[in-house]
Design a binder for these strands. Structure first.
Length: 582
RNA sequence: GCGCCCGUAGCUCAGUCGGAUAGAGCAUCUGCCUUCUAAGCAGGUGGUCGCUGGUUCGAGUCCAGCCGGGCGCGCCA
């Protein structure tokens, strides 16, 4: 990676001039404006301040000590003390040639691979997956793919909601209201129906309220918790039915999990966790419950956390603590990342703080990667017209349907099965991309028109840019020519501004991938790929490929293929599939 | 009351952790299809980065206060 090579030479130069400087702080970044150069460092200004010397003089001294033959032939001090680097064309050609030979794809894997556990999606048993699960699922999957690409050991774990008071009601419904034919047809809908019916009877204040049903539900729950054979069998059946639904949705989304250890998996560990917290003096009795207080932390002072309710049952704080402990002992991770809604910030602050007190020696970094809400056009959380949660399956159906209309409208000559195939990739891709593009912490307004637009920073635009490249190679193949990237690389020359700009932009892949992993923000990658697609279309307009004369023609084919590879890899990391044509 | 987040072009939003003249898309205006996919490209218009102070070579970015909005806050998860 060119910027890493410059960084390395720069650190060597700084070490000569200022041996006390921290090499880790000496960073090289792309210039914001190509007129300044290709790369810059602003680290010397901070260093000059620390040494109380003139920043421009220091920069000049470092520039004089800087030696990178063949990499940068010009290096200059600018402004208050920037150092600007300009790549030699040979360095660029060499790097592209190496990429064409398969030595790299413009990124380096992590210097110190880590074990990262990603906890995301977490749907509930017996309920349809809905829009509330989409951001966690898509964001978590994109992060998992990013970490994997960078060489980390990644473990994805779906912490399914398969335990809790709702099962008392579900059991009553199963035993008294179940319609076997309906269960056969659409299991989740039937489970949802019986749950709603019983829930209404158990809700004081509702017209259907019926104390007998409420007591029945409590009784069924107690029997389930006690391990009653019949109830356990029904419960397992409900989980199995739900997992079929999850598998269907995840299949459509192309998301996979290494594990799906639900809440119930930790049931027999909860008492032990509570006992340990109690004996360690981390929790104490308060109003009948066991509670952790954080008097010394301003942020949590007023927000104690219950780990055992006054009825003796554990809650999700306890389950999350047991889960974290299990993950530590089982996988010994460096990081555990929870991808959830921002509304759970307080909860995770509490869990992490309790855990820190409980196991101060643990080296794991827990992280809460939170995101904002998906809003409807009315700026309220996205719902159906009647105020229900939108089912994920329905949303994906609509995405494919709308994409099909676009594809069929633009390209009516394609055979219908292919149109559907393309529409599937474009539609699902559009939903995913729309979710990954905004800064994850901001709320965003869900808009079919925007996500399926053909211009702007959208999935269709990016997929289209990639298929344009594929189209060039299809034309090439149709004329009976063969193209071998590694061999063709020998003919690489970069002369036109658009060629140089594209070649340089390919080298930004490394920085952006590491930034995504570091900050858990896939939107950086979205923006990078959009810029790359823009650079490519600029090149595509300015530089004819197939109509050019050799060796320029071959050289441009190399650029096309490398761009396609970066685009395809980047889109794949975001979880998007790439059609051959559109 | 306490805490978290947000406020950037008419609209929707980026802004890689303090760097150089704040960027996209939409909308609007002007050009470009006998030429590898015009689902595209090039260019114009459009900004007191909520307000006020502070920190420093340098602030959309950090700190304090204020205004406006969203969300959360003991036995749901």
């Amino acid at each position: 990676m060119l910027h890493r090579q410059i960084e390395e030479r720069l650190r060597a130069a700084v070490a000569q001039v200022a041996p006390e400087a921290d090499p880790g702080a000496i960073l090289v970044r792309p210039c914001p404006d190509a007129r300044f150069g290709d790369y810059q460092t602003n680290a010397l200004m901070a260093l000059a301040k620390a040494r109380r010397t003139n920043p421009r003089q220091l920069a000049q001294a470092v520039a004089d000590a800087f030696d990178a033959p063949g990499l940068c032939d010009q290096i200059e001090v600018a402004g208050p003390g920037f150092l600007n680097f300009r790549l030699t064309p040979q360095a660029l050609v060499h790097s592209l040639t190496e990429a064409a030979r398969g030595r790299h794809l413009f990124f380096a894997t992590a210097a110190a691979p880590q074990t990262v556990i990603l906890d995301f999606s977490s749907p509930n048993v017996a309920k349809p997956m809905h829009v509330g699960h989409i951001r966690s699922t898509i964001l978590g999957d994109a992060l998992a793919r990013t970490f994997r690409l960078l060489g980390h050991r990644v473990i994805t774990d779906n912490h399914i909601g398969d335990w809790g008071t709702q099962f008392g009601m579900l059991l009553v419904g199963w035993k008294t209201l179940l319609d076997p034919a309906a269960l056969e047809r659409d299991p989740i809908a039937e489970l949802e129906r019986i749950y709603r019916a019983v829930n209404a009877r158990c809700s004081e204040g509702k017209p259907e309220f019926d104390r007998t049903t409420l007591e029945q539900a409590r009784g069924e729950l107690v029997r389930l918790q006690a391990g009653d054979a019949e109830n356990t069998a029904i419960w397992r059946r409900m989980i199995a039915l739900s997992q079929e639904q999850f598998a269907t949705i995840y299949g459509r989304l192309g998301v996979r999990f290494d594990h799906a250890l639900g809440e119930s998996f930790y049931n027999d560990r909860l008492a032990g966790v509570v006992r340990e917290l109690e004996s360690a003096g981390i929790v104490r009795e308060s109003e009948g419950a066991l509670v952790a207080f954080f008097d010394d932390l301003p942020q949590l002072q007023r927000h104690p956390a219950i780990v055992r309710k006054s009825d003796g049952a554990a809650n999700y704080t306890t389950t999350d603590l047991a889960t974290l402990q299990y993950r530590l002992t089982t996988w010994n991770p460096d990081a555990v990342i929870y991808v959830t809604d921002g509304r759970q910030q307080l909860h995770f602050q509490q869990v992490f703080e309790i855990f820190r007190r409980w196991q101060p020696q643990a080296r794991v970094r827990p992280a809460h990667v939170w995101f904002g809400s998906i809003l409807g056009e009315d700026n309220r959380p996205l719902k159906t017209r009647s105020g229900e949660n939108i089912k994920l399956a329905d949303l994906l159906d609509e995405a494919e349907e709308r994409a099909l209309q676009v594809v069929a409208g633009k390209n009516p000559d394609l055979p219908e099965p292919e149109q559907r195939q393309i529409a599937r990739m474009v539609g699902i891709g559009a939903v995913k991309y729309a979710d990954l593009l905004p800064n994850r912490q901001s709320d965003y307004v869900f808009s079919w028109d925007k996500m399926l637009a053909l211009n702007g920073n959208t999935a269709p635009y990016l997929l289209y840019a990639a298929t344009r490249i594929r189209s060039i190679f299809r034309k090439l193949a149709e004329s009976g020519e063969t193209f071998d990237l590694a061999t063709a690389a020998a003919h690489l020359t970069l002369n036109e501004p658009a060629e140089l700009a594209l070649a340089k932009h390919l080298h930004g892949f490394d920085l952006v991938l590491h930034a995504v992993a570091e900050e858990h923000r896939p939107n950086y990658l979205c923006n990078y790929l959009y810029e790359l697609a823009g650079q490519f279309t600029g090149f595509y307009e300015a530089c004819p490929v197939l109509r050019a004369e050799d060796p320029v023609r071959t050289s441009r084919l190399v650029l096309c293929e490398l761009t396609l590879r970066v685009l395809a890899r980047g889109l794949h990391v975001l979880g998007l599939e790439l059609p051959d044509r559109m």
